[in-house]
Design a protein around this nucleic acid. Structure first.
Lengths: 128, 128
DNA sequence: GCAGTTTGTCTGTCTACGGTGTACAAATAA
DNA sequence: TTATTTGTACACCGTAGACAGACAAACTGC
């Protein structure tokens, strides 16, 4: 399930948030579902529970989770945010940089194209 | 050309490196070309010259640039790195998370699909 | 040649942030 | 009630990012 890369420069709490968000977006967790407790997930990932708590708090800020003391984190029904005008730009830039990095690392154009198409297909089918 | 987002959590020097790398990958700068001096670019971007120097150094480490004192940064002929076995994973994960973020921000699936296809098309044409 | 300017580098400082340790308060379980 | 569970709050430490300032070497004008 979730994997943490301690060597990465992206903070652990954000890696956790990113991973969970991806699962939330795809509906792997539905409204009302309970997420593991901060301590349980912390042990599972091998990090401090405060780190997990920070990830949960971030997702709560984004409206994904409802945090209640001693009741854990429950997935919330979430209305989609309104379309931001600069949203496209905020997506294309990182994508472009990601592709540049991949090319620089030696991944072939053909491979990248295939992955992009695959992603597009998955999106079309409601997945991710 | 290059734009820096001071509010971002990704370091400025890395934003610069990412931006330049994207231009290098696409061949907007060819081998032998001179990049602006660290101080010139620093003033242009409104950051300290040491910050730009750090970005240059990173790109030099990656083999993109040749740094010589008082001669500035010159673009180097660069052989592509060998294909890494875990490269695909290192590309798909961030892409997935990027898409999740975009969806969470309210971007429509249709829009994302279009952007992915566009990127694929540009890649196929040798661009980015 | 020579003085002044340019240019990348080096060293130090300051600040902010990430991760952890630890204690706490409140709700649940026995 | 008592013990346990659970999210939170606060302090601490190490590290990294950004800047400031000085430096050494190459270039430019004369």
């Amino acid at each position: 399930m979730l994997r943490i890369d301690l060597a990465s420069n992206v903070p652990v709490y954000e890696q956790i948030a990113n991973g969970l968000r991806a699962e939330l977006v795809t509906g792997q967790f539905g409204p009302g579902d309970r997420l593991p407790t901060v301590r349980a997930l912390a042990i599972d990932l091998g990090v401090h529970h405060n780190t997990v708590a920070q990830a949960y708090r971030q997702l709560a800020d984004e409206g994904w989770l409802e945090l209640k003391r001693h009741r854990g984190a429950t997935v919330r029904e979430r209305r989609h945010a309104p379309n931001r005008s600069d949203g496209t730009e905020r997506f294309i830039r990182p994508l472009r940089e990601l592709l540049a990095k991949a090319l620089a690392e030696g991944l072939s154009r053909k491979l990248l194209i295939r992955e992009l198409m695959d992603s597009a297909r998955r999106l079309k089918e409601g997945g991710l």
